[in-house]
């Protein structure tokens, strides 16, 4: 019990306290421990732990093949890749002029070839899938279901159009005409009277046209409806306000959780 509970909790408390309060202390040894040593210790531990991971992976894939589980054929590729990478990393450089160690980054070696021509394209393929997933996710997010979703849609459209060159060519007056039409829809859905709607739209169009004619139709005036300005405002103010509140909540959560770990109040991570 001592080794499985008290000692780990003590280690967390001591290292956590040194890391937290070390930031307030101007002492080179503590600073180097927090900045370098502690992270290096973790890296060393993680390096040894990779053996556990590797053996687990091998065991799982072999089990899949022997038990002929669904998709077992893929496991053959996984195991082949595993041994190929080990061979290229530890046993066969493929280029005798390159020294061991540098062979993982030097050109002309088997390891580098695997990385450049097998690993990188496969990774790029997965990353490229993101574009399609963004499209399908955007479609779902922008579907008009309620007021919030509509607000998101409108903000999204304004930001997307406002950030491309086309956005700067769209006059504020065009947006004003659009607003008059949207206002007409609102009036119609509210009063359900065609006359009121027609009067609203006609008066709106006349007022906008008169104002535009008298001012000479400047592209970026009124500024609040010029898309590049509007998108910047949305991006800088409502967006930042929301993001910062989430960020503060996250910071608060991390702080409270860390304090719970350091003080040994939360011990679930080593079992109850």
């Amino acid at each position: 019990m001592l080794w499985k509970r008290q000692i780990p909790i003590l280690i967390v408390a001591v290292i956590g306290s040194i890391t937290l309060f070390g930031w307030f202390i101007n002492e080179p040894n503590i600073k180097s421990f927090v900045d370098d040593d502690a992270t290096q210790w973790f890296d060393i531990l993680a390096s040894f732990a990779i053996f556990l991971g590797g053996f687990n992976l091998l065991k799982m894939q072999l089990q899949k093949i022997f038990r002929r589980q669904r998709g077992w054929q893929y496991s053959i590729f996984a195991i082949a890749g595993f041994f190929l990478a080990i061979t290229a990393g530890f046993f066969y450089k493929g280029n005798p002029d390159v020294a061991w160690g540098t062979h993982v980054t030097a050109d002309g070696t088997l390891f580098k070839w695997i990385f450049t021509y097998m690993f990188a394209p496969l990774q790029a393929t997965m990353f490229a899938l993101l574009a399609f997933f963004v499209a399908s996710a955007s479609y779902r997010a922008f579907r008009i279901r309620n007021f919030e979703a509509t607000l998101l849609l409108v903000s999204g459209i304004i930001i997307m159009i406002g950030r491309v060159p086309l956005g700067s060519f769209i006059s504020s007056w065009f947006i004003l005409y659009l607003l008059v039409l949207i206002g007409g829809i609102t009036v119609n859905s509210f009063f359900k009277n065609k006359q009121y709607t027609a009067i609203f739209v006609i008066v709106g169009i006349i007022v906008v046209t008169a104002a535009g004619s008298s001012l000479g139709w400047p592209l970026d005036q009124p500024g609040i409806l010029y898309l590049p300005y509007l998108q910047e405002w949305i991006y800088k103010y409502p967006n930042v306000a929301g993001a910062r509140s989430i960020m503060m909540g996250i910071g608060m959560g991390i702080f409270a959780t860390s304090i719970r770990y350091i003080l040994g109040i939360e011990k679930s991570y080593i079992g109850e």
Binding site: K59, Q123, M126
Partner: peptide
């Protein structure tokens, strides 16, 4: 085996 390792690489 209910908890099993896959890889350290993000997209893999």
């Amino acid at each position: 085996d209910m908890v099993h390792y896959l890889t350290d690489e993000q997209f893999a």
